[in-house]
């Protein structure tokens, strides 16, 4: 077996096991950590597909940022302190049925679809080529990415909090006292 196939099998095993832990873990925080592991495995798959730039983007955005957002969402969950959160899924039979159905559909369509493979060799130095194209031929789209990100930033801020001044007064009085005291000690 050649090393690429071996690496692929190892990564596929890592992704599948980590994903199983994501859905079966009893602690939602552990689920988030295993999700990071699974996403990291996907970055490895990108490397094997000769797409190192995609791998870097995967690590930076998914492993670095999206997972941070998820862990934040877990830490900000209101009822995490009183231990009343139920982590178990009460709809296991339904879930199993739906995912089995999905598996059958996916396997069938994979079986039926001819998957074309390109005979062309993978581009070497994709990052360099991407940079050149961004800065010469596709200058305008490149700058528009920036505008898009700006829109996303402002939109996220507006949705997350309508008016920071009014909202902060409200959640200061609502927050429970021990939690706030602890936080102050940390800060």
């Amino acid at each position: 077996m050649d090393p690429i196939t071996l690496a692929f099998l190892a990564l596929a095993f890592l992704i599948i096991v980590a994903s199983l832990f994501v859905v079966s873990s009893r602690n939602i925080f552990h689920s988030a950590i295993f999700l990071i592991l699974a996403l990291f495995g996907v970055a490895g798959i990108f490397v094997l597909l000769e797409a190192p730039f995609l791998a870097a983007a995967q690590v930076l955005i998914y492993v670095g940022a999206i997972s941070i957002l998820m862990i934040f969402a877990v830490m900000l969950t209101a009822r995490i302190a009183d231990g009343q959160l139920r982590y178990t899924n009460e709809q296991v039979p339904t879930g199993l049925l739906v995912s089995l159905g999905l598996l059958v559909v996916m396997l069938y369509s994979l079986w039926q679809t001819p998957i074309p493979t390109s005979a062309a060799a993978p581009v070497s130095g994709a990052g360099r080529k991407l940079g050149e194209l961004f800065l010469t031929q596709y200058v305008l789209p490149f700058e528009i990415i920036s505008v898009l990100l700006l829109t996303a930033l402002i939109g996220a801020l507006v949705i997350a909090k309508k008016d920071p001044r009014a909202a902060s007064a409200a959640d200061d009085s609502a927050a429970d006292v021990p939690a706030r005291e602890r936080e102050r000690a940390v800060v």
Binding site: L60, I61, G64, A65, I66, I68, L69, F72, A73, M75, L76, T77, A78, R79, I80, A81, L149, A152, L153, A156, L157, A160, K161, S168, D171, A175, D176, P178, A179, R182, E183
Partner: peptide, 18 residues
């Protein structure tokens, strides 16, 4: 504990700059 919701805004800004 439940962390302060204000951290979330900083996380959002971080994601965009990431």
């Amino acid at each position: 504990i439940q962390f302060n919701v204000r951290f979330y805004l900083f996380a959002l800004i971080f994601v965009i700059f990431d």
